[in-house]
Amino acid sequence: MQKSALTQPTQLPQITHARNPGMALDMQWVRAVQANTSAIERRAATLPGRRSVKKDYQAAWLLKAVTCIDLTTLSGDDTEDRVRRLCAKARQPVRADILDALGMDGLHVGAVCVYHDMVETAVEALRGTGIPVAAVSTGFPAGLSPFKLRVAEIDESVKAGAEEIDIVISRRHVLGGNWQALYDEMRAFRDACGEAHVKAILATGELGTLRNVARASLVCMMAGADFIKTSTGKESVNATLPVSLVMIRAIRDYYQRTGYRVGYKPAGGISKAKDALVYLSLMKDELGHRWLQPDLFRFGASSLLGDIERQLEHHVTGRYSASYRHAMG
């Protein structure tokens, strides 16, 4: 058996695989991308019926999902104490007695995701845990602040200790078919991140078509994205299975063509344990086992953990649980 992910010091991608350096913009490839919406929707609609994990397997998969969560707070009323509470939850996401009963220990979430002003607080609260802090950046969520300020924002967050930067792309570049501009923007963000890993938020709910999602995914990977991420959580439509299918197929094509693995982060709207299982099975079936680890897969979620905790307690006790029995984040 391979070394347990639990004993690894961190989930940062550079530990386990070569970071995607990007490549020159290949417009021929971008233009050749096809995405048949109705077929993609059918695949997405039947997936939950095709895959099912039960009993111990379900518990193990849910624990895996916990390790892939970017525990997130992105609210205007965030305070340092509220962020500290979230970080505490990140360190101990599941009640100790439940973990004991499942024979697990040392489990924590994939990262804590906050706005820039909360980065220092989170870094402090998570010191020594190996849990990275991710900062949303570049004028999140709309990405319409001055370009140089968006780049500077990355710089500030990295200085503050963020090891992951979730940038937002300029949707207008996609909608206008200005792929070179998207590429250049993404390149600039990537360069600004330095050693920090960059997740490209496509805001798929605002890109109009799945074809645009597929093309934007490719362009961002070509420009050096470490992760591609669906949504800010602020669009009216966030992560969906069809969008996910398009993005992870783009990741698969990119890996097959370049040999570099890019991670995937669905964000927004994933709040049920059952949804998490479907997403994991989607990753496993379309990309393979390697993409089930937190260095290549994250959930951007705030309420998902609570539902998983209840399901895990049910698994352990055989009785349905209640949310107040689990520590709030």
Binding site: S4, K55, Y57, S281
Partner: peptide, 17 residues
Amino acid sequence: MTVKEIFETMEYGPAPE
């Protein structure tokens, strides 16, 4: 397999109707 082992292998396991 224990939960911890499944956590590593991430196999589907039986799901009988």
